[in-house]
Design a protein around this nucleic acid. Sequence first.
DNA 1: TCAATTTTCTTTCAGCAGCAAGCAATGGTT
DNA 2: AACCATTGCTTGCTGCTGAAAGAAAATTGA
Lengths: 253, 253
Amino acid sequence: MLAAERKLKIIDYVRKHSVASVAQLSQDFGVHEATIRRDLSEIEKEGRLRRTHGGVVLVERVSSEPSFTVRVNERVEEKTSIAERAIEMINEGDSIILDSGTTTFQIARLLSAKSNITVVTNDIKIAAELQNNKDIKVIVTGGVLSPESYMLNGLFTDHALKKLHVTKAFIVIPAIHPKLGLTHFDDQFVSAKRSMIESAEQTIVVTDHTKLGGVSLHNVAPVAQIDVLITGKEASETQVKQFQEAGVTVYTV
Amino acid sequence: MLAAERKLKIIDYVRKHSVASVAQLSQDFGVHEATIRRDLSEIEKEGRLRRTHGGVVLVERVSSEPSFTVRVNERVEEKTSIAERAIEMINEGDSIILDSGTTTFQIARLLSAKSNITVVTNDIKIAAELQNNKDIKVIVTGGVLSPESYMLNGLFTDHALKKLHVTKAFIVIPAIHPKLGLTHFDDQFVSAKRSMIESAEQTIVVTDHTKLGGVSLHNVAPVAQIDVLITGKEASETQVKQFQEAGVTVYTV
DNA sequence: TCAATTTTCTTTCAGCAGCAAGCAATGGTT
DNA sequence: AACCATTGCTTGCTGCTGAAAGAAAATTGA
């Protein structure tokens, strides 16, 4: 059996059983434990499984991104500043998309100051936050609820987003690069974000400075589709310049 | 068993049973109590459970956060009893619809005891309640959020419901009459409820006894489409009999 | 309320299983 | 023949576990 083949079978096995031990895999495949360990190290480097003492377990989505409760408490100040700047861009009568995320959740919080706004969101926590505001109409996209966040995703989400047209979309992305554009570590979230960008006249990316220059596996959109980038003042001048040269209006707050 | 595997199983166990003792976990997994304590400390550090003297409990639900404040409900006891009876009807592997409402919210609360369930709902509060349960897949219908409740409604709701097929639908209705069937005072909610009934193999109406015999303006569905009615024991025998004669299985709890 | 008692918790230590790293052997490719 | 990738083996090291002991918390009975 080829090494690559064995690695694929290991991944398959763990997908099915959630866990596997080095000893057992070694026996099943009839190779030395050291070989299995080497395989596991490589698989882990590819981010497909997580190694533990004695074996390997499934990657939880949490490990690629911490849970909402954790994230909401990270870099709160930067997120709030970004949200405040974002709010300034929203005018009376606008219909906007708020992508699921903690920064956009801050935008939702501040939105109560505005009136006559329609908000489209794929985040039930954002929806709940806006729920008791009579001056804001909230449209929830629908879809499958992520167990580790409040995001909706899937066919219904895409369908809803494709049927709508808004003036501004506020997008969250875990990696944005001046040349390689917006990328995401999980392909299942790509479709929704693309639809959001397509449904909006103007696309605004809100993200803290740690995401700048990052690249992930799955391509979401080129930089050319981004109109505005709002990020923290911690962003380096070099980074900001690179985005500006790519035609993006950058606000650092 | 791997240490990591054991930790995952502990979390699973507590998710289902809400609590667990060190002694019992130690016995179940056949490891020393000190080992369990070490596991619990680590799990707590990850923020997934909360330690107590002698064991471990679930972390407080996110739904207790301000944006999901629980409204004070009337007839909570009756609703809880109805929910308990409803839960008994749900089997492993079922996919169910939970209509928006406080009685169905109680069903959602009790659902955590079940596993391998798919829940379709048009209520973001119900969705939030089920969100951190890994054994339950939650599909939100999408739609416009009602300012006075957590209900989603409108074209997206109808579209999603029409695309789905479930084994059981738990429907809430403000008026149900043995001859005139299900009626609603607001026509905008009629379409969703009809779709729910059509999408389900079995339709179960859950409602407190004050709604029995009531009639409103807009017709939703005839009694013939109802399979089961779960209501409070306060319902009069005459009323119950009338529904039974119309072919409905009635449970008074 | 307080002190005695019991239970549970934390810390420490030793033993063992699992681990990374280096090296040699194998087999295939240039 | 030289080279490279892959595997198996060995070695010293790391991390997990159970046992024990002292600390802390809960319970009991006055």
